[in-house]
């Protein structure tokens, strides 16, 4: 079990979470960021890295990935620590006021302040629009491969047309009893080499590829027995005891919803002085928070973290006087940024 301590734990490494490191860093607070993705940037990196953003002050146009890169450069002097590929699960307030946060990978992080900068929520696999699929999840239907042995000897149906679908089709073919790849069209979003390999294996009858969409499942007690595929020539029913759908990612609030914070339509209400939630010491900034007049702009998130940092400082260093300073003229701030003469 990994464990670590930090002044501030930031949940979400999107643009607002990253800039929080800067504002908190100016007040000497150390930060750890946790994110379910494998890299910083949140939606900017995952959904639209190449799209230009036009409303970042002083950047007439900057790509979403470009903004993330610049933010990483800007916060580098504060040496933030990152826990990627992790989702927060539990939160507990200890007697001395410290928060103890656990993750789905059994990591434990202790922090004096928690900042939720989770945007639209954590990215999770999208449930495909197949009736009753919920009944089979976790027993016959899986959204990722944790152990290949789960699929040994099974009639496996893989649904999707991206790299995940193609890679697992090729990798699980030797393990499963049969593999059928289902995709709604003969073109793929995957690496051409994988697609060629798949077609070659189909040629040799080592697997089957069906053009179509899965419209129904049959089975009982969570155990799948067959899947109905609607193709260009009508419906076909194929044996299926394991299914792996790869339909991309969607965003969900996740376990944060169970932390006892007040919620407003899946958003977290905060005050507009400190951006603190209904639990003292837990702040929410960026797209995930709500207050009268809230605008979901990166710009607004940047403003929010500046104010939040003042309030966080009072918790992390109680009794210490907070001096308002400008980075243009303060030699102490410039020292922290590593730009002092």
């Amino acid at each position: 079990m990994e464990s670590s301590k930090t002044d501030v734990l930031i949940i979400g490494a999107g643009p607002v979470g990253l800039f929080a490191v800067f504002e908190l860093g100016l007040f000497d607070m150390k930060c750890r960021l946790i994110d379910i993705l494998d890299r910083p940037g949140g939606q900017c990196a995952e959904l639209y890295p190449e799209k230009p953003i036009y409303d970042i002050p002083a950047w007439p146009s900057i790509s979403a990935q470009g903004l993330v890169d610049k933010l990483m450069e800007q916060i580098a002097p504060f040496k933030p620590e990152f826990s990627f590929n992790r989702m927060v699960s539990g939160l507990e307030k200890l007697e001395d006021g410290t928060f103890r946060v656990t993750t789905d990978e059994d990591e434990v992080i202790e922090a004096k302040v928690v900042v939720i900068a989770a945007g639209g929520g954590s990215f999770q696999p999208k449930r495909p629009p197949i009736p009753d699929i919920e009944a089979y999840e976790g027993s016959s239907v899986f959204y990722s491969v944790r152990r290949m042995e789960e699929f040994r000897g099974h009639d496996l149906v893989i649904v999707g047309g991206g790299d995940s679908a193609l890679d697992w089709t090729l990798n699980l073919q030797p393990v499963a009893k049969s593999v059928t790849l289902v995709h709604r069209r003969p073109e793929f979003r995957a690496a051409p080499d994988s697609v060629n390999k798949m077609y070659a294996m189909q040629e040799m009858k080592q697997l089957d590829f069906q053009v179509g969409q899965v419209t129904g499942l049959k089975g009982s007690d969570g155990q799948l027995s067959s899947a109905t595929i609607k193709g260009p020539d009508g419906d076909v029913e194929i044996p299926c005891t394991r299914m792996l759908p790869f339909f991309g990612l969607t965003m969900k609030l996740g376990p944060i919803a169970d932390w006892g914070l007040n919620l407003h339509e899946n958003l977290i209400p905060v005050d507009t002085e400190k951006f603190e939630t209904s639990v003292p010491g837990i702040f929410a900034v960026g797209d995930i928070n709500w207050y009268p007049g809230k605008l979901k702009l990166i710009l607004s998130g940047f403003h929010e973290v500046a104010l939040m940092a003042q309030a966080a400082k009072k918790i992390v260093s109680p009794g210490e006087r907070i001096v308002f300073q400008y980075t243009t003229s303060s030699s102490s701030l410039q020292k922290k940024l590593g730009v002092a003469d």
Partner: peptide, 11 residues
Amino acid sequence: EEDMLDFAYDV
């Protein structure tokens, strides 16, 4: 757009 439609319902 065609790639993205892969994620839609009843295409």
